[in-house]
């Protein structure tokens, strides 16, 4: 009789990619099963854009916004969409698997957990990019003008910002495993805090000085600031939180360090849940 000895091999790169792609396909298939959701989320963006545009115009003497205001609002909104999507989708998906009762089974499979986590947000990035582009175009039409400078650099910075928010997403997923249902309220609260301290819909200059100091402690705030300042061509007073070079360094370090830190936190929470046997609990 031959005993079967379990192997503890690390998955190869091809296997990791295959897991990633299988998960992306699964997420896209689920998405395609709810066409009403799909259309509704698209229309919702247009309405949010219209609401904030009309709100902004009540403070305009000419009925049109200046180039700087358009840049601040439009690019801030784009950043808000990207950041909030990446920030809480991973945690939300983990929670969903937990409620559905499939999370435990997923952990019993030899598939890469990292690929499965990343895949939960990858398909949304394509969708959010499309929404961002369209909403930027609509806002440009409604507000009058929109400055577009240093596009290559801005996209590069966006990649680092997204990588960093992926890391925060992992950390939130870890929190979800720990606090379960209470994570929803926490995510909502963090989203509100980010809306204000990240100055997504207005310049940082509108915040009181003490609040600006708190903003300076949040890396994503630098992301918003440098992304829009770069696209606006660094007009006088921009970026607002720190000099250009300093903000670029902060964003790059954030993009490199945060995913590692976030994933480490996630693995810790995951190990804790497995030891306690609470992966399937919700």
């Amino acid at each position: 009789m031959t005993a079967i000895t379990p192997t503890h091999q690390k998955p190869t790169n091809a296997q990791v990619f295959s897991t990633f792609w299988a998960m992306v396909r699964k997420e896209l298939t689920v998405l395609s099963r709810y066409p009403v959701d799909f259309i509704a989320s698209f229309v919702q963006i247009f309405i949010i854009v219209a609401i904030f545009t009309l709100a902004g115009l009540t403070f305009s003497e000419t009925g049109q916004a200046s180039e700087a205001t358009s840049g601040v609002v439009v690019y801030g909104f784009v950043m808000f969409m990207f950041v909030s999507d990446t920030l809480w989708t991973i945690g939300f998906n983990v929670r969903h698997e937990q409620v559905q009762g499939t999370l435990e089974q997923l952990y019993l499979s030899p598939a890469s957990k990292f690929a499965s986590l990343i895949a939960r947000v990858a398909h949304l990035l394509i969708w959010t990019s499309l929404l961002s582009l369209t909403s930027a175009l609509i806002m440009r039409a409604m507000l009058g003008s929109l400055p577009v400078n240093n596009l290559g650099l801005a996209l590069g910075l966006l990649a680092f910002i997204l990588s960093g928010t992926f890391g925060i997403g992992f950390a939130f997923a870890a929190l979800t495993l720990r606090v379960k249902e209470a994570a929803n309220s926490l995510v909502n609260m963090f989203q509100f805090v980010f809306m204000i301290l990240g100055a997504c819909f207005f310049p940082f200059g509108a915040l009181p000085e003490w609040m600006r100091w708190i903003s300076r402690l949040i890396p994503t705030a630098y992301g918003v600031d440098i992304f829009r300042s770069t696209l606006m061509g660094y007009p006088a007073g921009f970026p607002e939180l720190a000099p250009v070079n300093v903000e670029i360094v902060i964003v790059v370090v954030f993009g490199l360090v945060m995913p590692v830190l976030g994933y480490w936190l996630f693995r810790g929470a995951e190990r804790h849940a497995r030891e306690k046997g609470s992966l399937g609990e919700f």
Binding site: T69, M195, F201, F202, G205, A206
Partner: peptide
């Protein structure tokens, strides 16, 4: 928070 956003935008504009 909802009210703060247009208020701050208005003050900045």
């Amino acid at each position: 928070v909802l009210a703060a956003m247009p208020i701050l935008l208005g003050r900045a504009t």
